[in-house]
Design a protein around this nucleic acid. Structure first.
Lengths: 227, 227
DNA sequence: CCATATGTCGTCGACTTGACGATAACAAGC
DNA sequence: GCTTGTTATCGTCAAGTCGACGACATATGG
């Protein structure tokens, strides 16, 4: 029979948002060794009596000031290669969060600073540990889930227009979509959008109808990326 | 700064196959406490110097005699609620495996016996720990992945007919599909099937063309469950 | 009033889907 | 051999969906 060697267990967070037409990720400057002052995903050790998702929620609030309320949070994957943490054998459960456009993040906890960075820059630079791979996996998951779920609404404020929703798709996928076909698709999917009856005018052009997220969470058939 | 309390880390395996038109899962009789003689998913502790996927591959071979070679293996999710293991704080990384129809499994390692059980029966009975939930998550993941990937071929022998592939879909989804439309769909998707040029006759009826899995892994557009 | 920008509705052809008819090629029984 | 039954494969057709794009609605800024 096998023994059970001790592991350290952490959670790491891939928190994504859309700012200025580009997908951004929340990163912290590490306030301690190893990788002191490197950029890293927010995260930390799981406490003895909390669930994994509680740990993720707590670290998100502690390190970055992002409240879990308006945020979709789901488990991404777990990374546990020997040697991924030079201190000890560590297994990290990564979580993926989608946040609407928020005020600037604040630092706290073990982090010397927290900031939104475009994912392209984050992936091009050096991240601590194996966080570059975790981020890449999270971005790919986000891109895939936009295809067949209503998760794009999690990047929007509680009330939003079709254009704002389309901007999310364009930023996350890095493409431009036809406004007319996109409008037809999202408004003809039953239960996806709930019309508030109001309109809002932002800049020139016809005012846009204001919607709230509807009860439908699955898109059948999906919105496809290539086509 | 935070301390890092010790956790035990295990891998658990949801190994699925199709037998006699029904989806089956590989379960073991636990050979030790806790949950002595309960049915459980195969699995065990991760060793200090192996990766998570190596641990999953090793446990699969040790406990059940299933070789990793013909088997698709992917990470499913991680379960770490306090109290899920009465002995200690344990985090379990679950893996999902798709196996073709194999000879009877054999027991080994910590398992007093290993056997294939229909997933309906497995979910209706009692499984050790939180394995019922892990199994349910694995089955749902398998059902979803059949829609938009070529993973159904992992349930088949290296060479198979369109009917055998259709039988996988029907067993996993619990539906019946129109043979003509299914045939049109899978043969018209470029790169999904590689024709061997041979045919095989099994019982009465016209002999079926024999295919091998092609290079395509993504189905665009997907095969949908409901319609 | 005019130019411009954006939101929304329509139209068209190409393609996909689901239902189902028709044909092909085998086994088994007479 | 011939008939019957069974399974594999090909075709057809109407309905729905998608991408490209035209047309109109309604705002802002001169």
């Amino acid at each position: 029979m096998t023994s059970h060697p001790p592991f350290a267990v952490t959670v790491d967070l891939v928190v994504l948002t859309v700012r200025a037409g580009a997908l951004h990720v929340l990163l912290v400057d590490r306030g301690e060794e190893p990788f002191l002052h490197s950029r890293a995903l927010p995260g930390g050790f799981v406490r003895p009596d909390e669930t994994l998702v509680d740990a993720a929620t707590r670290e998100l609030a502690e390190e970055t000031g992002v409240a879990a309320g308006p945020t979709h949070l789901e488990q991404l994957a777990t990374y546990g290669d020997p040697g991924r943490d030079p201190r000890m054998r560590t297994v990290s459960v990564a979580y993926l969060a989608f946040a609407p456009h928020l005020p600037e993040a604040r630092a706290g906890g073990d982090a010397a600073g927290a900031a939104w960075l475009p994912v392209d820059e984050a992936l091009a630079g050096d991240l601590a540990f194996d966080h570059a791979r975790i981020l890449a996996d999270g971005v790919e998951r986000a891109r895939a889930k936009l295809e067949y779920t209503s998760l794009a609404t999690a990047f929007c404020a509680p009330e939003f227009t079709v254009s704002q929703l389309r901007a999310v798709y364009e930023a996350v996928w890095g493409v431009t979509l036809d406004p007319r076909n996109f409008h037809r698709k999202v408004t003809s999917t039953p239960g996806l959008l709930a019309d508030t009856g109001r309109t809002v005018s932002d800049g020139p052009g016809r005012p846009a109808a204001v919607y709230r997220a509807g009860p439908t969470t699955a898109l059948h058939p999906p919105l496809t990326r290539e086509g």
